[in-house]
Simulated scan of single mutants.
Amino acid sequence: MGKAQLEHAMRGALGWVLWLIGVSLNVVAICWLGFQTLRWLQTGNWMNQPTLFSWVGEVCPGACTFATNPHSWFGAAKLIRLLQEIPSGLALAIVGFAFAILSVSVTDNRPEPPPVRKPRTLPSF
């Protein structure tokens, strides 16, 4: 197997894995929204989704206290504010779409365009 064939096979495998992750995350987000909709139909109350930051805060409390420090990097503070407000179902969908788009860009195997060999000519007016 040549180097080009091995690279093509690896790109295909990586693209397939990224696509599978993206589809799985989107299915989980749809199921989460479906569960909330069914619960809303049953009880009549829309249950607020926990924010993504509540899930991340349980996993890495040390890193989260650093990120919520007001003297930390400004971009991190904006990211944490977004994570505190975004519902986890929407976050799963966004990450799923990002993985799906990444899988398409990884598996793109269009050939490079051939080089242009014509000499440039000056425009005539």
Rank of each mutant, 00 (worst) to 15 (best):
P115M: 00
A76V: 15
L6N: 11
I80H: 13
N109D: 03
N26K: 14
F66R: 14
R39T: 03
G75E: 05
L79D: 01
N48Q: 12
R39Q: 07
M1P: 01
K3R: 13
L33Q: 11
L102P: 10
T65P: 05
L33Y: 07
R120I: 08
C60H: 15
F99R: 05
I80L: 13
I80E: 10
A91F: 10
W73S: 12
S103D: 04
P114Y: 11
Q49M: 13
E112N: 13
S24R: 12
L20M: 05
R110N: 04
P114S: 14
N26V: 11
R39H: 09
V17S: 08
K118C: 09
V116L: 11
Q42E: 07
A4H: 00
A100H: 02
L122K: 09
L122P: 14
G89N: 09
S54T: 02
F66V: 14
S88Q: 12
G62P: 05
A93P: 02
A91N: 09
S54Q: 03
V56H: 00
R117M: 12
A67C: 15
V28D: 01
F35G: 10
Q36K: 14
F66E: 07
W55M: 08
P87Y: 10
F53Q: 10
L122H: 12
Q5V: 04
W73G: 13
P119Y: 07
A77Y: 12
A98L: 12
E7Q: 00
G15K: 01
G75K: 13
S24Y: 09
S103C: 03
G2E: 07
W32H: 07
S88H: 14
L102R: 04
V59I: 11
G89T: 06
S88E: 11
A77T: 14
N45P: 05
N69G: 08
S72V: 02
I101W: 03
R39F: 08
E112H: 11
T43G: 05
Q36V: 04
G15Y: 01
E112P: 08
I101V: 10
G44W: 06
V106R: 02
S103P: 03
T51L: 05
L6T: 13
A29W: 03
S105D: 04
G34R: 12
G2L: 07
Q84L: 07
W19L: 01
L102K: 06
P114W: 13
G62Y: 06
I21E: 04
V23W: 05
T51M: 06
R120Q: 02
I80P: 10
V104K: 02
A93I: 03
L41A: 07
P87D: 14
E58L: 00
E7S: 00
D108C: 10
L102N: 12
S24M: 11
L79Y: 08
